[in-house]
Amino acid sequence: MNEASAFTLERRDLIGIEGLSAPEIVGLLDLAEEFVVLNRQIEKKRTTLRGRTQINLFFEASTRTQSSFEIAGKRLGADVMNMSVSTSSLKKGETLIDTAMTLNAMHPDILVVRHHASGAVALLARKVDCCVVNAGDGAHEHPTQALLDALTIRRNKGRITGLVVAVCGDVLHSRVARSNILLLHTLGAQVRVVAPSTLLPTGIERFGVEVHRTMESGLKDADIVMMLRLQRERMAGSFIPSVKEYFHYYGLDEAKLKRAKPDALVMHPGPMNRGVEIDSAVADGAQSLIREQVEMGVAVRMAVLDALARKLPNA
């Protein structure tokens, strides 16, 4: 057993990046590196989670995150069950807590939860006896996305400390942005946010980021350009005038990307709105890491599930 394999997290649940120390983050990334190797082999199966039950409880539709967690659990040998709550008990009026108590009575070992309301995953975690992994809660956190982004950056740049990372777009509604800002800040990157003022949360500068309102200044000499999905489904009011104007000023195209360093890399958590926040030529271009992010997603989630399971009773 090497050093990474002996690593454990000093917590039962992973609700957010907030509260994780730099060594814990690095430990998870190191562990994930092992799974990257494993995932590229023909024989991808481990028995680490044999006998364990993992329930993916998704209160909000998701394709990529849910399948990523499902594959991660299965490759570690767990029995994985997917529950999309929008199609079952929620429609019958059951509350979040009731759903949690019901599932808890079935003795799962790991609950992977996504919910449209910020704080819902933490609330649920207090009511159950198993590990809870936050797969995204409202506009709060999406910790495994931040970890997979960090792993992708580290593998391509060899480091995270000292890099200039520009997080661009709908920061206001983005849990990905919050988790990434926290993680990158903890590991010593220089983080910028770039967005129109209407898409910036109040007090964002207190997160330890530089605030830019134009792509021209925000992307200047950046090492990493991290685009965010314009969450049109969350736009209760008029945050931006139109998709056309948004793309004109904030959409990443080749001209704007030239402001960044020549070897800058482009990321996007998906799913992309092509022609809204990112131009296809950039999304599919040589500087894009978008597909690699998806690969790293499985490895990081295996690392998280593995590390948390080591703390389970009878482990």
Partner: peptide, 12 residues
């Protein structure tokens, strides 16, 4: 709210 957002956006 509409005026507030417009003022915020226009400031940029």
């Amino acid at each position: 709210q509409v005026l507030r957002r417009a003022l915020t956006y226009a400031r940029d």
